[in-house]
Amino acid sequence: MAEQFVGKSSEFKDGERQIIQIGKREIGVFRHEGEFYAYSNICLHQGGPACEGLTIANVEERLRPDKTSMGLFFSDKDMNFVCPWHGYEYDMKTGEHISDRSQKLRKYQVLTKGDDVYVVA
């Protein structure tokens, strides 16, 4: 596992993504709320480009104190990204599939040294 330079932090705006290739591996690097996340760009479902679809807030059901539903709302803090092929949705912070947390994309460590961003792959 080597640190691979992927770019400058100052050139990586919040909400931006880069799809990079290191050797034979394709990796999606996200910047979300100032943090960097990197995942394998191969969807667990059928191998689609998992990191290239929509980014969308997590849908959650809000309940009243008596446990009756107030309806479905988009989360203010949890963000997901969606594979554009068949809609497999993954947690931005963990890479886990949101409806089956046992399935998750391969996560790569991202290091920032000064202004430089590295992916350990």
Partner: peptide
Amino acid sequence: AETVKILRKIPAP
């Protein structure tokens, strides 16, 4: 030696 190749840049909304 492995090299990093940027395939695509997807801008923020």
